[in-house]
Design a protein around this nucleic acid. Structure first.
Length: 588
RNA sequence: UGACCCAUGGUGUAACGGCAGCACAAGAGAUUUUGGUUCUCUCGGCCCAGGUUCGAAUCCUGGUGGGUCAACCA
């Protein structure tokens, strides 16, 4: 028995989740020489989503925490659904999340020959047989969860006949669907998976890695556990729906007589206001409800990346949601909390007016342009300062002015003073309206020259502080404002006669043109070399907090001529506390 | 009308037979040149019924509720 000390940080830190407890117990008792070796085993038939991110962080996190290893293994046993497009995107996503499988990139298809040999072992032991029933017949004879099944009339074929038939299946002598190899277990088992499950099916299909080398392919159950065994995985972590497969997982390992990993199941992640099934996500893409797998409204990893989430924020999210066996639905506000927390510390501030209204400073010199100094990040002094041009004609947010404001309105109104952040205190003197529509077109103000930011007079108490841009120097940018994809907390909770698609949010994307301070130029386009990945070298370049409105991230569509930003998430907003007029206080 | 799994504030997650704690959300206040951040406080929970025990969220039994399982998908 090998004793191994647990990581130092474990002492006095957070309590362990149930998987860590199992692992630490195994380490203490010397199971598998106290090794820890996990794997992340995606099927390359779709893009990874935030639920996979939980699994990736769990598996790679455990490997790292216990000085073990983690493999990336593609579970590619179904050639008709799988594609290299997905293989590539999965590797990119795992890397982007910050994990490294080093030289341990594997494919279940690497083991096809070995798996075939394992099948032969079972046939020789009389534990597997070739069955000629059709899929329908098999389904009929399988029984139901409450009724035992019937044994196949092919169940007692001789070892010789089975061996011969199985070889001929491989040789391509039979049609798709005409025969399968089945395990001989127990047609009366209360566990449906033990009722002579299919091991191999005939599929004359081109495989993305093995080409046309094979026309029989192993089923998940016959491939997964054995692949774990071949890779000497110690803890094979998967989601709850595989719990009923575990007896079969163990049965194959035992029956073949090979190294035995341990399967442990945890509850998959659900998040409010979105769907997580690959089928549904694929449908949203195919039917054009979103603009591709990386649409920033998607819960896919590439979608979150394009939206502007950082890998750090997602790892932190995976960490704090925990791991357990009970069904769970995580409030999306927790995800939002994670990205705000990260970006607040790391993203530079910029002033951007999303819904502009013109402000004219009547007593400011016509052609004067002053350079104001603005702090890049109040949370990080090392980020320094930048210059912002100030002039007679500015823009502020339309929501920052009210002609007849309630008492709790801390912004601009006739006769009231506010501070323009990093500039002067101004007072509203009058407004000009469009005679037709009644819409305010100009707000006329005066400024107090003694209140320039930094001057003693500027410490004067005023009602509020607004962000602004100077008309002449402002840069236009396309801004994509995202909202939750679904209107219902749980879109899978479907009313009679509806589908989850009936709960799609029609307003999940709004595109506007905003005016941004000129400092944005030059830094608002992704390095073309990074474009494919959609992320940047230092993690937060291209990501900003637009002061008072939210966090924004440069989109891959952005060019120097046409800047494009995605809103990652709004700033937390307590402006409507105790008020019922939220629309008036919240930016778009 | 079967087997298996699960059950702690609104949400998520701790407790290893001994004071039910943490985070998010919600609410109140302080600070603030972002109605952001930060800080303080408040609200609010052991599914039910028995049993074991000096003592049960924890162990046992039975309910109740939820989930999973009947692809030649994974």
């Amino acid at each position: 028995m090998v004793e191994q000390t647990l990581p130092e940080e474990e002492k006095n830190t957070r309590s362990l989740n149930f998987i860590e407890e199992i692992i630490e117990q195994d380490i203490r008792t010397g199971v598998n020489e106290s090794r820890v070796h996990t794997r992340f085993p995606p099927e390359p038939n779709g893009y990874l989503h935030i639920g996979h991110a939980k699994s990736i962080c769990l598996n790679f996190g455990l490997g790292k925490k216990y000085n073990g290893k983690t493999n990336l293994r593609f579970d590619d046993t179904n050639p008709v659904k799988e594609d290299v497009e997905y293989v590539d995107s999965i590797m990119e996503d795992v890397k982007w999340l910050g994990f490294d499988w080093e030289d341990r990139l594997f494919y279940a298809s690497d083991y096809f020959e070995q798996l075939f040999e394992y099948a032969l072992i079972l046939i020789r032991k009389g534990s597997a047989y070739v069955c000629d029933m059709t899929a329908e017949e098999m389904s009929e004879t399988r029984g139901t969860p409450t009724r035992p099944g019937k044994e196949s009339i092919f169940r007692n074929r001789s070892v010789e006949e089975n061996t011969d038939l199985f070889h001929r299946m491989r040789a391509g002598e039979f049609e798709d669907g005409s025969r399968v190899l089945r395990a001989k277990i127990d047609m009366a088992s209360p566990n449906m998976h033990m009722r002579d499950p299919v091991l191999y099916r005939i599929l004359h299909a081109h495989h993305h890695r093995t080409g046309n080398q094979w026309c029989i392919y192993p089923m998940y159950d016959f491939a997964h556990g054995q692949s774990d065994s071949i890779e000497r995985i110690t803890h094979s972590i998967c989601t709850l729906e595989f719990e009923v497969h575990r007896p079969l997982y163990d049965w194959f390992i035992h029956e073949i007589g090979i190294y035995a990993p341990r399967q442990i199941e945890f509850a998959r992640l659900n998040v409010t206001y979105t769907v997580m099934s690959k089928r549904k996500l694929l449908e949203l893409v195919r039917e054009g409800y979103v603009n591709g797998w990386d649409d920033p409204r998607m819960p896919t990893i590439c979608g979150l990346r394009r939206r502007g989430f950082t890998p750090e924020s997602i790892r932190n999210f995976a960490d704090i949601i925990g791991v357990a066996k009970r069904d769970n639905v995580i409030d999306v506000s927790l995800l939002e909390y994670c990205i705000r927390e990260d970006l607040n510390k790391r993203a530079n501030r910029l002033m951007a007016v999303l819904n502009p209204v013109k402000v004219i400073i009547d007593n400011y010199p016509d052609d004067l342009v002053e350079e104001m100094e603005a702090v890049n990040n109040p949370e990080d002094e090392s980020k320094g300062k930048r210059k912002m041009p100030f002039s007679k004609t500015l823009f502020i947010e339309r929501e920052d002015f009210m002609e007849d404001p309630p008492n709790k309105f801390f912004r601009l109104a006739p006769g009231r003073e506010v501070r323009l952040k990093a500039a002067y205190i101004i007072r509203c003197e009058s407004v000009v309206k469009d005679p037709e529509t009644g819409e305010i077109t100009e707000i006329h103000c005066t400024y107090d020259p003694q209140t320039k930011s930094g001057m003693p007079e500027s410490n004067r108490k005023v009602k509020g502080t607004l962000h602004w841009v100077s008309e002449k120097q402002a840069v236009k940018a396309e801004i994509r404002l995202y909202d939750r994809l679904f209107t219902k907390e749980n879109p899978d909770d479907i009313e009679e006669g509806k589908t989850y698609k009936d709960y799609l949010n029609a307003d999940s994307l709004k595109i506007i043109t905003a005016l941004i301070e000129p400092a944005v130029s030059g830094s608002a386009v992704l390095d073309p070399a990074d474009k494919s990945a959609g992320y940047e070298k230092d993690g937060v370049s291209g990501k900003y907090q637009f002061e008072r409105t939210g966090y924004f991230s440069v989109d891959k569509d952005s060019t120097p001529q046409h800047l494009v930003f995605n809103r990652v998430v709004r700033l937390k907003d307590s402006s409507s506390k105790g008020e019922k007029v939220k629309e008036n206080f919240t930016f778009l």
